[in-house]
């Protein structure tokens, strides 16, 4: 039932993006990439923080199911982050003129991918389940500290070809109201998908 409604919701969202979003000034139809790019980026941050939260809960309780949720959240964060990177590179090619230019934005997201890539290397290198859970929980806590710096602080501090984020310095959201509504629906949709996958088997211990 949940899966069915989520599928319908997702289909409706995609339809909304193509049907309701007007061509944007200067960007034209390309603006639609943003309705994928922005939500997946936001949700990947959410996933990294949730991973750290369940890691913290694991350290408190030593319940292996918490470690499973933590690692699953990190994995989904990684996948969403990769989606944001790839859609961002395509967007960059179409607006700046190059897929990849080692822009501060791109460097920081690259580092983020490395940090969480190393998390999985760490996990797969330890056999003992409890040791694996403990070490990766500590690693996850350390990495989530880097997330706000990499995503929110550094790219705003340097000149970047990346456009001003929606939540910008001036605190004003510069977006057409229809676009903003569709964007919020997209965000809600992607968040629902994320939680559906994350909590699909809450008390099962993944290997």
């Amino acid at each position: 039932m949940i899966n069915l409604s989520l599928t319908v919701f997702t289909a409706a969202t995609i339809w909304g993006v193509f049907y309701f979003v007007p061509p944007a000034e200067g960007l034209g139809g390309l603006v639609r990439i943003a309705f994928f790019h922005i939500p997946v980026a936001w949700v990947s941050v959410l996933a990294f923080f949730l991973s750290a939260w369940w890691a913290f809960r694991y350290l408190q309780t030593s319940r292996l199911s918490y470690d499973s949720i933590s690692s699953r959240s990190a994995a989904m964060g990684f996948v969403f982050c990769l989606c944001a990177t790839i859609s961002g590179a395509v967007f960059a090619k179409l607006t700046w003129g190059a897929y990849w230019n080692w822009d501060p934005r791109q460097i920081t997201i690259f580092i983020l991918l490395f940090i969480y890539g190393a998390y999985f290397a760490l996990r797969s290198s330890i056999v003992d389940r409890a040791v694996k859970a403990k070490l990766s929980a500590i690693y996850s806590l350390f990495s989530c500290v880097a997330v706000p710096f990499l995503v929110f602080v550094i790219p705003r501090y340097y000149f970047s070809l990346h456009p001003e984020p929606l939540l910008n310095k001036n605190g004003s959201i510069q977006m057409d109201s229809v676009m903003l509504l569709v964007l919020l629906i997209c965000l809600c949709n992607i968040t629902c998908i994320f939680f559906r996958v994350l909590y699909r088997r809450k008390n099962v211990i993944d290997e």
Binding site: P22, P23, A24, E25, G26, L27, G28, V31, A34, T95, W96, G97, A98, N101, L161, P163, E164, Q174, M175, D176, V178, M179
Partner: peptide, 17 residues
């Protein structure tokens, strides 16, 4: 050798600016 551009992304409907 190469030019990259930063365009103002205002996310506004075409023709309203």
């Amino acid at each position: 050798d190469k030019i990259l551009m930063k365009c103002p992304s205002k996310y506004q409907k075409e023709g309203t600016l």
